[in-house]
Design a protein around this nucleic acid. Structure first.
Lengths: 223, 223
DNA sequence: ATATACTGTGTATTTTCTACACTAACACAT
DNA sequence: ATGTGTTAGTGTAGAAAATACACAGTATAT
């Protein structure tokens, strides 16, 4: 049995230098055939975060995705048939895995697709506003927390990392200063491997040293 | 008629060098006679934020209080009689006005009182956890947003301002560096007045120049 | 007049941030 | 083997911001 509130999820991925959002075409009223955020009613005996993970899995086939609650939305007019409270989450995932399968296995949606920020159509409910707020949130958050790594595969190049920052912040960064700063933090482990499949000089691969990163991150938090 | 969810409010004030939280002694089951956060069911035809403002007014007699949503809490076990979702807000108010009347005018609570961080008793529901999260939130927020002013009267001394920062951050700051930094921002207006009622040299009063502060604040946001 | 308690101020040092441009390496085509 | 295209990878100097640190001045109370 369903509870009386829903969860909605803003799923961010990073692809071809751009931040993308996963949207679904609804197959249920209201807003049937309109694009919107993946989301649904939470089961009555189900923890809210479990519901979000379930929806994420149904849409992407992925588990263990970075997840944060954004905010609750409960406007009287957000749902045509009376107020339905929704708790919005945002998720960051490593799209480059490309294990992400976009065949929806639920019957309340018709299809799912990735949209770049500037391609997003008119959305159902207040979902447009929710995405705006999520973007504002990660733009702020990336400046004090290393969420960029959640958007990249385990092994990445410094240029890829910089591209994530540039895509989220919406501005270009100085290459030398960026590398200097990132390497100075000391939480990047240089791997004995380089990029493959590029038709030019392959770049060094790095991975995140989670221990060191948590140490530094916690210091930053408590400043 | 009531909706099926509640709002709870962490009301922060600043008094005698400490951050205080306003708690109420419940007069309703569950957790009758236990201290908890001010909060109640949202009316069916009432906007959520309106309900928070109503509760704030009922408890403090104040309107136009700084208010932000913290998070929604919906744990299956947070309420003994089944899941009740609550949306938690935090509020910052200028306690030194001391117009704050603590006679509750509702019948679902017995009394209200200010508690310093280290005096907070065991609380009803998950309210202890909610306060923890609110504190973490304002500790972070004060580093990038001038919320300190919300806790002070319109006219304040630089020492008072510093004391707010020290109370929130939980560490002592260097007086000269603090003043230098604050005055450099340029959003403080020096008043032709000094403190009154002190038995030593009276300090200069300042007030916030909201226009300049918003300009600088927005720049900071978009960095 | 004297004690008390807080206000208000400057400088030198270290650290962090910013601006800026070229050579090296590799893949591929010829 | 050579050349072309494309990105990788690197250092330094100047500016700005953060930090550490101590004492004389002023209002009040007795």
């Amino acid at each position: 049995m369903y509870s009386n509130f829903t969860v909605d999820c803003v799923i961010f991925g990073f692809h071809e230098g751009k931040i993308k959002v996963l949207l679904t075409e609804r197959n249920e009223y209201p807003f049937k055939d309109t694009w919107g955020l993946p989301g649904y009613f939470v089961d009555n005996d189900e923890e809210m975060e479990h519901a979000v993970k379930r929806i994420l899995y149904e849409h992407t086939g992925l588990k263990d995705i970075y997840l944060e609650q954004l905010s609750a939305f409960a406007g009287l007019k957000r749902h045509p048939s009376g107020r339905i409270l929704t708790v919005a989450y945002y998720a960051l995932l490593q799209l480059d895995h490309m294990k992400v399968k976009l065949k929806p296995i639920t019957n309340y949606m018709k299809q799912a697709r990735w949209f770049a920020e500037d391609e997003i159509p008119e959305l159902a409910f207040d979902h447009g506003q929710i995405i705006e707020l999520s973007l504002a949130k990660i733009r702020r958050k990336i400046t004090y927390s290393p969420i960029a790594f959640e958007l990249l595969p385990d092994k990445f190049t410094l240029t890829q990392l910089q591209m994530v920052y540039e895509a989220v912040l919406g501005k270009v960064l100085d290459k030398r200063n960026f590398r200097k700063k990132m390497l100075n933090y000391g939480f990047l482990k240089e791997l004995p491997e380089v990029q493959k499949g590029v038709s030019y000089r392959a770049a060094r691969l790095y991975k995140l040293d989670k221990r060191k990163y948590l140490k530094i991150f916690q210091q930053t938090i408590s400043f």
